Simulated assay, not measured.
Amino acid sequence: MDGFQRRREQKKKDILEAATVLFMEHGIQKVSISEIAKEASVSQVTIYNYFESKHNLIHDTFLYYVNKAVTDFEEVIHSDVPFPDKIKKIIFNKKEVANHIHEEFYQYLMKENSAEGNFIEKIYVEKVIPYFKQLFEDGKNQGFVDPNLSEEAILFYIKMLKDYIQQETVYQKVLPLTEDITNIFFYGICGKKDE
């Protein structure tokens, strides 16, 4: 990649990062292209040159946000910290997101997530499930996950939870419960160990 292409990609990333920050804080409708341009230190024309419309920018921001969340999850899974610390980090990350995401942006993410054949479903199958498998295998090897629990049962439980949360009547209520649901999921499987 030459210098021009690198600068172009960095500028696009800056726009997506700025849009993510503003959408997380204020929602989608209240944020204007001019505010995103100001936050990203670019012109509105530059945003339209990259994304053509606010709708496309919202969609690409959604993809960027999901990819970033998966990368963060991957870093936790591949870190050298003990299993309980990985679980705490995952719960902390979920809590942080739940506390800082604007309801409207969250609803958009969940609505996109519930569409058939969507991007999140693809990421879930290709990346998240293998990471969960690795996480629970590590937990079993370190003595924190019951070795008698089958991988199939754990994955079935994850899928059941995911499928339920994707229902519109559910995802509209789930955001304030994110930390509790995550705690129940992990400590229900692991049995919370004394600190």
Results as ranks from 00 to 15, higher is better:
K95M: 06
K95W: 06
K95I: 07
E96R: 14
E96K: 13
E96H: 14
V97A: 11
V97H: 02
V97G: 06
A98N: 03
A98M: 07
A98R: 02
A98P: 00
N99H: 06
H100N: 09
H100E: 10
H100D: 08
H100C: 11
H100V: 03
I101V: 15
I101G: 07
I101M: 10
I101L: 09
I101K: 06
H102Q: 11
H102K: 09
E103P: 02
E103A: 14
E103Q: 08
E104W: 06
E104A: 15
F105K: 12
F105I: 03
F105Y: 09
F105M: 13
F105A: 15
F105N: 05
Y106W: 08
Y106V: 15
Y106L: 15
Y106C: 15
Y106K: 13
Y106R: 07
Y106G: 15
Y106P: 05
Q107E: 09
Q107D: 13
Y108I: 12
Y108E: 10
L109K: 03
L109C: 10
K111T: 07
K111C: 13
K111G: 14
K111E: 14
K111R: 10
E112C: 12
E112M: 13
N113Q: 08
N113H: 10
S114A: 13
S114H: 09
S114C: 10
S114P: 00
A115P: 02
A115S: 12
E116S: 15
E116F: 08
E116G: 15
E116N: 11
G117L: 06
G117M: 04
N118P: 10
N118H: 15
N118M: 11
F119Y: 08
F119W: 04
E121M: 05
E121A: 15
E121H: 08
E121K: 05
E121P: 04
E121Y: 05
E121D: 09
K122L: 15
K122C: 15
K122Y: 14
I123F: 10
I123D: 05
Y124S: 12
Y124A: 12
Y124K: 01
V125T: 12
V125S: 14
E126L: 15
E126D: 13
E126G: 11
E126N: 08
K127Q: 07
K127W: 08
K127F: 14
V128N: 10
I129A: 13
I129Q: 08
I129R: 01
P130T: 01
Y131P: 01
Y131D: 07
F132V: 01
F132P: 02
F132Y: 02
F132M: 04
F132W: 01
F132S: 08
Q134P: 11
L135P: 00
L135G: 07
F136K: 00
F136G: 03
F136Q: 00
F136C: 09
E137D: 13
E137A: 14
E137I: 05
D138L: 05
D138H: 03
D138V: 02
G139E: 00
G139V: 00
K140V: 05
N141R: 13
N141V: 11
Q142A: 12
Q142V: 00
G143D: 01
G143S: 03
G143H: 01
G143I: 00
F144K: 01
V145W: 03
V145S: 14
D146W: 00
D146C: 08
P147K: 04
P147A: 13
N148H: 10
N148G: 12
L149A: 04
L149H: 04
L149D: 05
L149V: 06
L149Y: 02
L149R: 00
L149W: 01
S150R: 03
E151H: 05
E151G: 14
